[in-house]
Computed example of a mutant assay.
Amino acid sequence: MIEARRHLLKVAGAAFLGTMGSMMSAAWSQSRYPSKVIKTVVPFPPGTSPDAIARVWAHAMGRHLGGTIIIDNRPGATSVIGTQAVATAPADGYTLLYTVQNTFSINPFVFPSLPYKPSDFVPVSQICGVPMVLITGAGSGINSFQEMVQRARKRPESMNFASLGIGQSTHVAMVRLMRSIGIEMTHVPYKDGGVGDVMGGAVDVSFESSTVALPLIQAGKLRALAVSSATRLELLPEVYTLPELVPNFAAADSWQGLFVRNGTPSDVVATLVAASQSVTGSEEFQRRLRESSLIPVGNTPAEFAKVLEQESRAFQQLVRENNIRVQ
């Protein structure tokens, strides 16, 4: 009888441990991240620079995480539409935001109201820096930065500049430059940035991202007058930086970066940080960025948050002093 009881206890114990093991295994399987497809919202159209780099990044991230990451393009309203879509999604790490400088460093100060707050999001990592190139048409007769400044001082009413629109980074960057060197030019906003009219001579100058400007410069359709970075670009080594040309002018690059909803579990954020840093640190990804004159970064959430804080402070003051508003 005693032996029978012992046998029953052993069987019951084994069954209990087996059941518990199955339950723990199932729980681990359910909590493992990612356990389903991750959607990354890019608030710009397909084919744009953020979209192109996000797709390269997402493919590499999928390999690192052992899952699938898809790109969901939600363009419109200076990234507001796509950002709002992520702000209202569950904070579970399955809806990410891949965006640019305007979203958090400029939009909050130029729009009268927004359907999101910067505090709705947590920075994961800055993927890359995006140098801005000050450009003019190849036939404009403006052969250097100094010539542009001289012409603007002599005939300010005849000089104009293009941008992606009021409150866009290319507009704000030009306002900052004009205030730094004491010149005035007329603003001509375009939905596409106006690079075609700069090439054609209808507009004198503009800031354009290196990804757009570089092929046109190499094709002889545009002339580079300066770059916004702290150091010269590898593919434009003869072009001066604005910090070289303008005393006390800090670098003015834009950026592309990754964000999640505030409230996303810390272990999920940590997983995304580690995987993204592995991607941005890889030789293959860095080569892809440099081919487009982009600067690999891959910083930590704390480092990225510091960048956002410094930018926001500077842009808020610039926007207020120059009354830049999106109606």
Rank of each mutant, 00 (worst) to 15 (best):
E208S: 15
S282R: 02
L65H: 06
L272K: 06
R179Q: 07
N107K: 06
S276I: 03
I71R: 03
A230M: 07
F161R: 04
G194Q: 08
I217M: 08
A27V: 13
Q310C: 07
L96M: 12
L235N: 13
R63M: 09
V212Q: 13
V86R: 02
R290G: 06
V307N: 13
I135L: 14
I295M: 10
L294I: 01
G47Q: 00
P189G: 04
G194P: 10
G82E: 00
L8Y: 11
Q146V: 10
S158T: 14
P237M: 11
L236C: 05
E234P: 00
P46W: 07
T186G: 08
L242M: 15
G200F: 13
K39E: 14
S266Q: 14
I181N: 06
G82A: 01
F145L: 09
W57N: 02
P115V: 00
R290E: 07
S293Q: 02
A77I: 00
T280V: 13
K36N: 11
F44Y: 13
S293I: 04
F315Y: 08
I181E: 07
A27S: 14
V41W: 03
R223N: 09
L164Y: 12
G82S: 04
R55Q: 15
A138Y: 03
Q310I: 15
L164E: 09
T95K: 07
W57A: 09
I106Y: 00
G93H: 02
W57M: 12
T88A: 06
Q327K: 10
G196F: 12
A54V: 07
S276K: 08
A202L: 12
A230E: 13
P45L: 09
T95D: 08
H59Q: 14
R74S: 05
L114Y: 00
A274G: 07
V175H: 00
T271K: 06
R6S: 12
R176M: 10
F315A: 01
V269K: 10
P118K: 02
M23I: 15
L65Y: 06
Q126H: 10
L235W: 08
L225I: 10
A251R: 03
R313E: 15
K36V: 08
A224C: 11
M23Y: 14
D92G: 02
K36T: 14
Q277A: 12
R5Q: 12
A4E: 12
S125A: 12
N299F: 08
T48L: 08
A54T: 09
E184K: 15
S206Y: 10
E303T: 03
T280W: 08
M199H: 07
L318E: 06
G13Q: 04
W255P: 00
D72C: 03
G196I: 13
V56P: 00
V205Q: 08
T300Y: 05
A162P: 03
D204W: 15
M178A: 13
G257L: 10
G165D: 00
S228K: 04
M159N: 06
F207E: 06
V41L: 09
H59M: 13
V86G: 00
G257A: 15
V172R: 03
K191M: 13
E311H: 08
V279L: 07
G67N: 00
P118G: 02
A213Y: 04
R74V: 14
A305R: 13
Q146W: 01
S113E: 10
P115M: 03
V203Q: 05
L225R: 09
S278V: 10
A251M: 05
R261D: 06
A87Y: 01
S209C: 11
V297P: 01
H64Q: 15
F109T: 05
P112D: 02
A251E: 04
